[in-house]
Simulated scan of single mutants.
Amino acid sequence: MTERVSHRNPWLVLTGFLGLVAVVAVVGGLAATSAKDVYARLEQPPWAPPPSVFGPVWTVLYVAIAVAGWCYWRTDGETRGFAAYGIGLLFNLLWTPLFFEGGAAKAALADIVLLDAVVVVTIVLFARRSKLAAALLVPYLAWILYATALNTAIVVLN
């Protein structure tokens, strides 16, 4: 697909996508103030990453998520794609408070399984208009599938 002609400044729109995703990241970060302690107290599988990995990985993923949304927007993306994108951001936002602050690892597991499905749908919808937008979400999907396995293991072990 070709990029659409818009009267909106594309760099301003990119800033909007970055801001939207940053809100998700900041709210998650605020909800994870005790994450390091909670994570350390949990029985974990041997393949669980150290807490220091999460910040850098999520920083890269959040930028990619924002750029993916912007790339999709540049192709005059359909409402269904944006709806899936937004629902995915909501499920992403909910996981951290459920898992770390709510002590609800099972509810967090249900949330992340839904997130997995929504991200797959988003990739499929984005791919119809922008292969780049879809490709930018693939590392995110890989990471949340890994996080789903980790969440599952923690539920089983605890």
Results as ranks from 00 to 15, higher is better:
Glu3His: 13
Glu3Ala: 15
Val5Trp: 12
Arg8Gly: 11
Thr15Ser: 15
Gly19Tyr: 03
Gly19Gln: 06
Val21Met: 03
Val21His: 01
Val24Cys: 00
Leu30Ala: 04
Leu30Pro: 02
Leu30Trp: 11
Leu30Asp: 05
Thr33Trp: 09
Ser34Phe: 10
Ala40Asn: 08
Leu42Tyr: 12
Gln44Pro: 00
Gln44Met: 12
Pro45Ser: 05
Pro45Asp: 08
Pro46Gln: 07
Ala48Tyr: 00
Pro50Gly: 15
Phe54Asp: 00
Val57Ala: 01
Trp58Arg: 11
Trp58Ser: 02
Val60Phe: 10
Leu61Gly: 04
Tyr62Met: 07
Ala64Ser: 12
Ala64His: 02
Ala66Glu: 06
Val67Leu: 12
Ala68Met: 05
Gly69Arg: 02
Trp70Leu: 02
Cys71Val: 11
Tyr72Val: 03
Trp73Glu: 08
Asp76Glu: 13
Gly77Arg: 03
Glu78Ile: 03
Thr79Lys: 15
Arg80Ser: 15
Gly81Phe: 00
Ala84Thr: 06
Gly86Cys: 10
Ile87Gln: 10
Leu90Ser: 11
Leu98Gly: 04
Leu98Ala: 01
Phe100Asp: 00
Gly103Leu: 06
Ala104Pro: 00
Ile112His: 04
Leu114Thr: 08
Leu114Asp: 02
Asp116Gln: 06
Val120Pro: 08
Val124Met: 04
Val124Glu: 00
Val124Ile: 14
Leu132Cys: 06
Leu136Arg: 07
Leu137Ala: 08
Ala142Arg: 11
Ala142Tyr: 10
Ala142Val: 15
Ile144Val: 15
Ala147Glu: 10
Thr148Trp: 04
Leu150Met: 11
Asn151Cys: 12
Asn151Gln: 12
Asn151His: 09
Thr152His: 14
Ile154Tyr: 13
